[in-house]
Design a protein around this nucleic acid. Structure first.
Lengths: 221, 221
DNA sequence: ATGAAAATAGGCATTTCTACCTATGCCTTC
DNA sequence: GAAGGCATAGGTAGAAATGCCTATTTTCAT
């Protein structure tokens, strides 16, 4: 089984390489320090690696962008995403881009070997944490806006206003859409800022998207 | 742990009941022969069951319809879908409706016990087959809209400004952070609005998050 | 070295946002 | 029936954002 590594940290790459050599039947295909190098190497080698360990944080061409290209040009290549943290947004994004697994960097070597072997055998491997994120994502995405965390705290009207803010409407536009006074929209916006503990509109949108408080289907894309 | 069963076949229900009594710490809450009976029983009992085994094929009110109502009225109730076949469409549908697990009827008692225990402990359990269906569904659902990446269009400085906007900084704050004039930040912000085709800050944040143009790790949560 | 793009910065005008207030009518819950 | 939450709406201010201009310097590639 040939494994390639794409990570910007030299030391990390070397460390992983050492670990991989200890694994039965595993061979290092090549290493890359950024997404561009990775693509260059993939284009250069004659036999493609079976599995790629792909770091999210890389200069020049990062993991997300690299994954988009991989999905297009090398759909057969199974890649395991390496990241420092469990980030909801990244997990979802990378799974959507075809990631075979999502491995946090402070996992044990045993975790890594297990992940690699599962990916080799079944084509993918999602641990409990990742599955949980995926499940949340499926359920909240299809059951439009309905969630527990902040969902309990904000009122229906506030949610409507939040939705429209995320759809790039200004206060007067929202007022017109909801047939209420702009001042009322102000009030709801202020409640949202307070309840969601934000400093400005940007914060509201971040929280709304991260917490699934709005219906993404109604938005751009 | 109290478990309820909803299945139209008397013999199957009895058989499952017998099996359940063999499991450590498991107690039968009640049985129902169709969806309507299930809802009646749920409304009647004083203490809700912890887990529900829900058959898909039932007369009067089938599993799918029952699940919709369960999701609405008893969102806390974890239900395990029982079905005769692995059907992609059903798996996807039921997971969307909040199913905690999908168990085919010719599984072994050990499989069933394992599923029940995992659901009790983690809140859900998807076996390899189910996971595979979910994965296919996610990837194919999100692949079509292959839109252009904005990554290449925005400059480094613009990306930095975008990042800080998403971190809820105002223009003067961003200017101070980057040691440049607020007017320059204005310029970058305007370029972003233009390049990303947005109407306001809210739009910028939406695009930034959806397209992964910013480092989520540096943000709230 | 010439042109293109990026980064820098400003003027001016308007709109929008945010932060303090107050206040009323309508529900539901206790 | 009192209390509290919600939706409604307004006053006043100042801060921020947005639009539409111009202009310089740097940087990079042809």
């Amino acid at each position: 089984m040939r494994i390639a590594i794409a990570d910007d940290e030299e030391l990390f790459r070397k460390g992983i390489s050492m670990l991989l050599t200890d694994f039965e039947g595993v061979e290092l295909a090549f290493q890359a320090g950024n997404g561009q190098e990775l693509l260059d190497q993939l284009a250069a080698v004659e036999t493609q690696p079976d599995i790629l360990l792909l770091d999210l944080n890389m200069p020049i061409l990062d993991g997300v962008e690299a994954a988009k290209i991989l999905q297009e040009k090398y759909p057969e290549l199974k890649f395991i995403v390496l990241s420092s943290y469990y980030s909801k947004a990244f997990i979802v994004k990378m799974i959507e881009l075809g990631a075979a697994a999502y491995l946090v960097k402070n996992s044990t070597p045993e975790d890594m070997e297990h992940t690699i072997r599962e990916v080799a055998e079944k084509g993918f491997y999602y641990d409990d944490k990742v599955m949980s994120v995926i499940r949340d994502n499926i359920i909240t995405k299809t059951r439009p806006p309905s969630r527990v965390s902040f969902r309990n705290e904000i009122s229906n009207r506030e949610q409507e206003v939040l939705q429209l803010i995320c759809e790039e409407l200004t206060t007067p536009e929202i007022a017109a859409r909801l047939f209420i006074s702009p001042r009322t929209v102000h009030g709801h916006r202020n409640s949202l800022l307070s309840k969601l503990d934000c400093k400005n509109t940007a914060g509201l949108v971040v929280v709304a998207l991260q917490e699934g408080l709005v219906d993404i289907k109604r938005m751009r894309f």
